[in-house]
Amino acid sequence: MRRHLQAEWTKLRTVAGTGWLLLGLVALTVAVSVVAAAAVSCTSAGCAYDPAKISLFGVQVGQAMAAILAVLAISGEYSTGMIRTTLVAMPRRATVLAAKAAVVTGLTLAAGTVAVLASLLVGRRILLENGFTRGPGTLMLSLFEGPMLRAAFGSVLYLALIALLSLGIAAAVRDSATAIGVVLGLLYVLSILPFMIADPGWQKLLWQLSPMNAGLAIQATTHLSTLPLSPWAGLGVLALWSAAALLGGGLSLRLRDA
């Protein structure tokens, strides 16, 4: 396994796009979060916004970068034919996928931590200026209070799970354009579907099934009782999606010719 890890790390490290994608993840997440935080303000009537969700808003865009990184880690090999060399050198295909997953997860966790911490710190400053108040009994929590810590930690995990989901799909689909289309469709389109259906029962079910909506429940710090899923259960839904995708991708890698 160590050899596998080293091989995958070397491959990913030496591809030109990786650094840019990780940088893009951090930059996009922070930039979009800052814009979102600057766009909201509290009136004297109260705050309708969840400060954690707003200052981590950029995760919704930054996740695309994690998805590309993961998709390219495997479909890039298919498009260049490198996959055949890889599988000749390391014939245990499940281990190859596991090693790829480990390396991609590690990189996403590292970049995600930077992105989330920076977004929270900058977002907090802007929100305080926009009328969110600090103090006991208010919405604005410090970074180390329970729900805020959960939102921060959970968002990093969320990004890693998105990368794993993308890796599994790419292993199953192989073609990079198709894989990225499927991943983004699954994330963005499923996330908007509940808002387009009037029936509350369907709405709730679709919301709970959508990997992005359910997974981002981890960022909620207010109105928790109105959420269709508790934060950790929501992240669990996303974890199930990722596990299913990895399983499907792993089986496809084992059973099909490369």
Binding site: A36, Y49, F57, V61, I68, A177, G181, V189, I192
Partner: peptide, 28 residues
């Protein structure tokens, strides 16, 4: 393919989703 698909989706689909189904305020 990947860079192009992502760019096109980020240009067309993502703004629509952020505008219609997110916690973004109406003005933005």
């Amino acid at each position: 393919s990947v860079a192009a698909v992502i760019t096109a989706i980020v240009l067309i689909v993502v703004p629509y989703i952020l505008a219609t189904a997110s916690v973004l305020p109406a003005g933005a």
